[in-house]
Each structure stands twice: as structure tokens, then as C-alpha cells.
Write a protein that binds this DNA or RNA. Structure first.
Lengths: 165, 165
DNA sequence: ATAGTTAATGTTACATTATAACATAACATA
DNA sequence: TATGTTATGTTATAATGTAACATTAACTAT
């Protein structure tokens, strides 16, 4: 098992997003089956909507799109589905944006470290054991027991820097 | 200059909060004078309210208290003051809580790393160059230029663990 | 001193994000 | 099929945050 992974790079080079999305849905299905949980059509649809691109998506934007095919949707519809997906590690919430991104790595529950480009809006997720480990070490020094870590880094991705926006 | 500081420890042992608050206000005054900025009575009052304890405070709670002596207060009153104080590094926003904490270290603009106890609600701020440096190093690997880092760690502080809540 | 300028605050209205509470429907299984 | 559990529907409202414009206070340069 690699310890430090780039879960999701910036603007994955020349990737066919349809396949990317399919893979995520498939991983989610497998994960839920393994866990004895139900990836209902509603939950799957919300997951697909979050996965439409590699940018964080707002709950109410998901809601608007969800309504197109599912007129009974209301805020709780979306928030419940997002809660479920978050609990399973299938999406992460970006706290500093009040927005959600898909995660293709539901296997091990993790928090992840997010790098958010101000220019293009896209997000890269790392799951870096060095960062987690260092934070853990620092916490140990004053007897703090970690439940959950949130690391969100804002700045400019290489591609945007190079294109000189 | 020390590189790794505990800006604000958990439940500062046997501290007289009145003095703690006074020191923060004084530091704020000095900082604003140095910068040629106005720590108006309103801004100072908001800073005092945020500093009432070492826990994150909600904007609307500040508003409620502010209204007691300043009946014309409305949401923009508080958010403007908080924006000013954040810009000056006098308070930090804890994004994962939508809440604000005072910072006694306005000198150097910094992001800080926050350790938040689920049990007692208090927050410790580190300004740890090792953590920042490591994040910086990881970012460099994929050409990401950091503007701002947010590190918010949730868990249980030593005191609460020991008291076995 | 005072007119012009900028910064700060007042005020109203509204936008965005999220949850409570209870009703109904779908599913699981004895 | 009766029964409990999980998921969804529905209404209402809470919590968080901002836009836009009016007014007041403070600063600046004559």
C-alpha cells in the first residue's frame, strides 16, 4: 500500500470524464455492497452530480439539477444524500467553500488534504501520510487525540500560473 | 524569532482572563497604530466579544451581545468588523465551525493550525513552521503556489481525556 | 474653518446554507 | 402479512452571510 497518494490531481490530463465518473460510481457500488449499505438511485444520482467535474459543487446546485429528474427534491433530500456519501468517504466537504467534491477512494476512511485553485476553481486531493503523521506528532506533544483533520490550502495551480491568468 | 509557537494553548492554566483580554486589546491597539488603521470603538468591542473566552464564537452571538450596548447593530455591523479584524490577523475564522477566535499574535500575518476539542469546545492555535513547511514542500511538487492554508484538527484535548468526560 | 474626499457605520432587504419535525413509502424479515 | 427499520417526502424555519444604498464621522488640503 502506497502511503502518499494523489487521490485526484488537478485537471487530470486528457482524461475522459465519462469514464472517470463511471469508475467512481462503480467504486461506490462496490463499497456499499461490501458494507451492506444501499446506494439508492437518489444517492447515486447525487453522487453523479457531485462528480460532474473536478470542482467543488454546492448543495443547492446539486438540488437544482436533481429537481430536473426528481421533482420532489428539497434541501433535506440533498443534504441527507450528501451526509450518507460523506460518511462513506464517497464525497468530501470542503469546509471553506461550503461545497462538495467526489472522492474515488472510499476504501479507507480518510480526511485528505485539499489544494484549491483560486483561478480555475479545481481541487486536488492528497492523502499524504507525511502531513497526517506530522500533525499527529504535533498533537501528541500536548496530549491531543485526533478524530478528524481538515487541511484546505488555497492558491494557484501550476496550469493557471503558467497560462498567466 | 522562534519558528514554532503555541499561540494559544488549551485552557491556559490558572490564567486571569481579564488580563489576557486586556493584553489582546492592547496588542490590537498597537498593531493598528503601527499600521495607520483605526481600531474604532465598534471594532474594539467586537474584538472584546470574540475574546471573551478561548472558544470559537459565532457571528450572530457577537451580534446579540453587541446589540446590548449598541442597538443599531445589524449583521453587516458584525461581519464588517470581523472582516477588518481578520484582515489584521486579530481574529481567525474557524471554517469548519463558522466561528471566530481571537489571536494574540497580529504581528506576522499567519494562518495558524487549530486544534479543537469536541468536549470542552476550546481551541488551541499553533503556528508551526514544520507543518507549514511540509505543506509548502508538498505543494511545490506539483507547482502549486499557496496563498493561504487552513488546518483545523478536531478531537479531544488532554484535559478532557483525563477528566474522562 | 470649510469644502471636498474617503472611510466607517446605519439600514433594509435578501441570498445562501442547513436543519427540525413529522408524514409517508419502501424494504427486510419473522 | 404483520412489524420494525430505513429512506424519502414535505413544510417550515433556523443559521449564516451579503448587496446596495443612505448617512455620519474623520481626514485632507486649501
Amino acid at each position: 500500500m502506497k502511503k502518499n497518494k494523489v487521490i485526484s490531481p488537478f485537471k487530470p490530463a486528457a482524461h475522459k470524464h465519462q469514464e472517470c465518473l463511471q469508475a467512481a460510481i462503480k467504486a461506490a457500488k462496490t463499497h456499499c455492497e461490501d458494507m451492506g449499505l444501499r446506494l439508492t438511485p437518489l444517492r447515486q444520482r447525487v453522487l453523479e452530480l457531485v462528480w460532474q467535474n473536478h470542482e467543488p459543487v454546492k448543495a443547492y446546485d446539486v438540488l437544482d439539477e436533481l429537481k430536473q429528474g426528481h421533482s420532489s427534491s428539497a434541501p433535506p433530500t440533498v443534504y441527507r444524500a450528501l451526509d450518507f456519501l460523506q460518511d462513506q468517504g464517497l464525497v468530501h466537504k470542503i469546509e471553506s467553500l461550503n461545497a462538495y467534491v467526489g472522492c474515488g477512494n472510499p476504501k479507507e476512511l480518510h480526511s485528505g488534504q485539499f489544494f484549491i485553485c483560486h483561478d480555475c476553481g479545481s481541487v486536488a486531493e492528497l492523502d499524504d501520510a507525511d502531513i497526517s503523521g506530522l500533525i499527529q506528532k504535533k498533537a501528541n506533544r500536548f496530549g491531543f487525540k485526533i478524530d478528524n483533520e481538515m487541511v484546505e490550502i488555497k492558491g494557484h495551480c501550476q496550469e493557471c500560473l503558467e497560462s498567466g491568468i
